[in-house]
Write a protein that binds this DNA or RNA. Structure first.
Lengths: 196, 196
DNA sequence: CTTTTAAAAGCGACCGGTCGTCTTTTATTC
DNA sequence: GAATAAAAGACGACCGGTCGCTTTTAAAAG
């Protein structure tokens, strides 16, 4: 019973993520979202406190698989720190190409649309980004110790720079409908800039 | 007479830009926008064909002063190509700090929200970005010829990379409410990466 | 130079719908 | 039969867009 509810809850989150990646926060209506997962409109507020809170949860929910995925690459002992990061981003690039550049990144989209307005969502974004960057940091630190990545810049700084540049590349991808911005990110920053 | 209409038109565009930077495309209502500039609702469609078309024009209108501004830095003979670009970005950083990180960049926000949905706006964004990057390119080429910027990467590639990274940094700025991401952009990419 | 008339522009009420939220009713469980 | 949870539907506000009335402007006629 409680499991079914939890399942439905996750369904709403997943569907919300998909819709918001396409149409943004204000462009995604609660009613429409609920219809697609067969949940009555009146039930929404038994799952979530408000649309804003729902979105904050969606952000957290969205980043999870990316964290897991990056982590699994980093834990792969066959890959050094840099190779893990590079493989990770290349797999994302491949996926985006396969899905015809639909969506991009929920974080980037929401940062632009409501990051400056909704405190709740900004906090969720901040936490998500920090988790993500901390993971990148670990990989970069390993790569530094392995002598692959330059040591004159801190992993923390590099991780944030990479994150930002990747977000920008995703936006550019949407506009050009091409993975070239993503490939440029890999070639210039991963292969060139941070490498020893 | 026709001048007054042109003036009003520009007022709507400017106000629309401000509102959209804060609340995005779907978060900005036509009626509310018009009220703030004392234009009757019914008149909107004598100025613009639709909200979508209006937004495309706003994009073009938005980028203009940035183009002019960057151009003036590039034309300043006291500054080499790189110094011009750096000064330009630093002046933007200063401005954003003074305005408490309100808004950020309309291009970035709209790329995320409607770049993948509205063809009209995507085209406007594409053109705007290309103009902007072409200008950056010129500065980078000069700097290359002056021996300040590395020559193993094409100006075109560097310009796009810088643009994307800057957009990402602006998003991050919004979330952190801090100019640190912008300073990181300058320090790591302008001062370090592209420099000889 | 008036006066009359036609065309254009300006404008607010209003269209059908949808928004996020909340209250009320219905169904379920103990 | 009381307590709890779920769903229905209503709420006022607002959405982008349109329609036709009113005012203004310009041209034509006297």
């Amino acid at each position: 019973m409680a499991n079914l509810k939890e399942f439905k809850r996750e369904q709403i989150l997943n569907q919300g993520i998909q819709l918001m990646m396409m149409h943004g926060y204000h462009g995604t209506g609660v009613k429409l979202l609920l219809d697609t997962v067969n949940v009555p409109k009146g039930s929404f507020y038994s799952y979530f406190e408000s649309k804003e809170n729902f979105t904050a949860e969606a952000i957290t929910h969205y980043i999870e698989p990316f964290i897991t995925r990056l982590q699994s690459y980093l834990n792969n002992s066959e890959l050094d720190g840099l190779a893990a990061i590079k493989t990770y981003f290349e797999s994302l690039t491949q996926e985006l190409e396969n899905s015809d550049f639909k969506g991009g990144c929920l974080l980037g989209d929401l940062m632009g649309e409501i990051g400056g307005v909704s405190d709740v969502c900004r906090q969720a974004l901040k936490t998500a980004i920090n988790q993500y960057c901390t993971l990148l940091e670990q990989g970069l630190l390993s790569a530094q110790q392995q002598g692959i990545v330059r040591t004159d810049i801190s992993p923390a700084t590099m991780a944030r720079l990479l994150f930002d540049a990747w977000q920008g590349a995703l936006l550019h991808m949407k506009i050009e409908q091409s993975i070239i911005p993503l490939q440029r990110f890999t070639a210039e920053l991963l292969d060139n800039y941070i490498t020893n």
